[in-house]
Design a protein around this nucleic acid. Structure first.
Lengths: 150, 150
DNA sequence: GCCGAATTAATTGTACACAATCAAACCTTA
DNA sequence: TAAGGTTTGATTGTGTACAATTAATTCGGC
């Protein structure tokens, strides 16, 4: 007796289909692509859209704030924000009280995009074919994973 | 009566915390970072690791095959595969029976990496703090989402 | 008030991602 | 078999991502 059960052979763990990571990697990219048609109409990219989500709510944030909330560093944010600045969507200026910080402020042209973007979340929700309980459970699980990974 | 319930105000849908997409985007990047220490030891990147997962299983695949399985196009794969070719991990040659196709073949140095990578999946599994049922349910849901998005 | 440590952005360099275009090879069918 | 359309990779250009380094500023302790 005591035959080893081996539900999965040892190197099955190295098959793509059994990876934990790949579905996240793939879904993330496919989701971004699904946003494309909506975002293209506003002339912005997906990470830029994320920056706007924060600015539409907070009006003014430092680069550090944005980095902490989006989990992005200055090497990504600085050029991205400069491109958005060139389009007059936001302003970049040093904090007079702490010259190390750069304050990102929403400009009128950026605020104007909010109305145009207001229909995007509902459209995307319909796009993913998830029930509301599924969605809620998923978001809970993902944010839980995030805290463990960070 | 008939007071509008408004469980969520209209523009709450535009808050980052209520987005469906962001958790996927963030978890995907944090997961990739979690792989980093293991992959760095082998000198490869995360997308290169994905290519290896397929080559370790199939030994030989066309660029088209890789693109279909990884959901990546030639603009991403061609330079990535050229870098892997320079490290003698794989070979790139035209299919003699169809000169449009490029066949990617695993070389000994690439095969040798398989043993060194064999412990990675288990290590990552421990890293994410998920029960096996949670993991299975998650993978099912994500692959289901993938089919809907593609 | 001064010095060393810490904080914050910016810069540099490498590696994806992907849209758009191009070019070669193949296939179809008249 | 020749023309037109399709398939397949490669190329180009833009925009992230991120590690590592640098530079300016601030803070804390003495």
């Amino acid at each position: 007796m005591d035959i080893t059960p081996t539900p999965t052979a040892p190197n099955d763990l190295l098959k793509l289909e059994n990876q934990l990571c790949f579905p996240f990697y793939a879904v993330s990219r496919q989701l971004t692509k699904a946003y494309q048609p909506y975002l293209l109409a506003l002339g912005l990219t997906y990470p830029q859209y994320l920056v706007f989500l924060l600015l539409w709510e907070h009006e003014q944030l430092t680069v550090k704030d944005l980095g902490e909330k989006l989990l992005l560093d200055s090497g990504t944010l600085t050029p991205l924000l400069k491109r958005m600045e060139q389009k007059q969507w936001l302003s970049r200026r040093r904090d007079p009280r702490d010259e190390r910080s750069v304050i990102i402020g929403l400009l009128p042209a950026g605020r104007a995009l909010e109305a145009q973007a207001s229909h995007i979340p509902a459209a995307m929700l319909a796009r993913v074919h998830l029930t509301l309980p599924e969605l809620a459970a998923l978001r809970t699980q993902l944010t839980h994973m995030l805290t463990h990974l960070a």
